[in-house]
Design a protein around this nucleic acid. Structure first.
Lengths: 199, 199
DNA sequence: TTCCCAAGTCAACACTTGTTGACCTACGGT
DNA sequence: ACCGTAGGTCAACAAGTGTTGACTTGGGAA
């Protein structure tokens, strides 16, 4: 009864496969495991167990572990357009958005944990900052300084990733205990200078 | 007991006992592999092969993989005393020292790569910044602001580790291509503010 | 009803890992 | 000379990995 409705809805949703629910369960479990354990310690068997699904199904749906990771670590920074803001508020807005994004999607944690040992993940990380942050910064930057855009994006990446590494992965105190307000207060000037300042 | 005395005596003897050479070779290979591959991808067999030594010898000398890592990732930041410098030069000096330290000892890279998935490594990383950077900052800080020392150390860690992550591990361009001078110029104001400034 | 086929299960594969214990071997003290 | 032992070799172990292929099941179409 209920199942029929689900099946129909699911059939509509995807390209025709009826097992979207299993696929979604695997993906959710994979995100969790990759985020918690990193690429090599997260095993297909553990992911399958979390999703209450046979390990063979994981292979059926995603081909192999690397493709599963690629699907689980798909991520978009969803950067807002900050060009409307006064320059001295852009830094605070950006770091705030970044922390939000970090906290409500485990994919970023999975990506960071994996990117340290997995080339594919590292590539995606690079593309995230070069391909998404760069263009956003371009809209804030005086065309005369266009040559500095990539550097600015990179510098923002160093501070943003470093903070996330210490706060969410290493759980280094007292960084992990900082309130959101404190964190933003300390980081904003740094980000702002990287966005629009000079060395 | 007896073994150590003998080993030392033999090492002192002049010829260089093979066991000490083996031990050193294993450690060097381990540092290299852990730095390049991270904890789980660096295998005892690969390390032994690099050192041209039987895998069983690695176990004989270091007990198990975790202890080998602990020995290979022993590290000291060797922080200089910056309290003699004018406050606005301390940031530049510190980041310069940090980059030097990073570049001439692979242990830090090994530690960072491993600390993302290995609890022991993460612990050592935390202790590095809390136990070594903290005390150094204390000497720069007005006793009235003693309560901010740990936070300052943590913030410096976020920027320093984030930069190292992007430059040496992720090899994110254009951060990896920055000259030392450029890097120091961009980071110094950030570090200086974390050391002595306010949000 | 019968039949088909995708979804799901099971057991095994080939391989790699850390780790162990039995076995050599060369050399310094006696 | 001998012999004990530290240093080194070899092969195997048990556990765990990603991955595969043959089998079973259930629900919708005929």
């Amino acid at each position: 009864m209920t199942e029929k409705t689900q099946a129909e809805a699911l059939a509509d949703a995807g390209g025709g496969r009826r097992s979207e629910r299993s696929r979604a369960a695997i993906l959710a479990a994979a995100r969790e495991r990759f985020a918690a354990d990193g690429y090599e310690r997260a095993t297909i068997r553990a992911i399958a167990a979390d999703a209450a699904i046979d390990p063979a199904m994981v292979m059926r749906y995603f081909g192999n572990k690397e493709k599963l990771f690629a699907a689980a670590a798909e991520f978009d920074l969803r950067l807002p357009d900050l060009s409307a803001l006064p320059p001295d508020e852009a830094g605070a807005a950006l770091i705030n958005h970044f922390l939000n994004r970090w906290e409500d999607d485990e994919s970023l944690k999975a990506l960071l944990r994996a990117s340290v040992t997995n080339p594919v993940a590292a590539d995606r990380m690079r593309e995230l900052f070069a391909g998404q942050l760069g263009p956003m910064i371009a809209r804030l930057t005086d065309p005369a300084d266009a040559g500095t855009i990539a550097t600015r994006a990179g510098l923002v990446a160093t501070q943003a990733l470093g903070f996330a590494l210490c706060r969410y992965v290493l759980e280094l105190e007292p960084i992990a205990a900082l309130t959101r307000t404190e964190a933003v207060a300390w980081l904003s000037p740094t980000i702002t200078r990287y966005l629009t300042g000079t060395p």
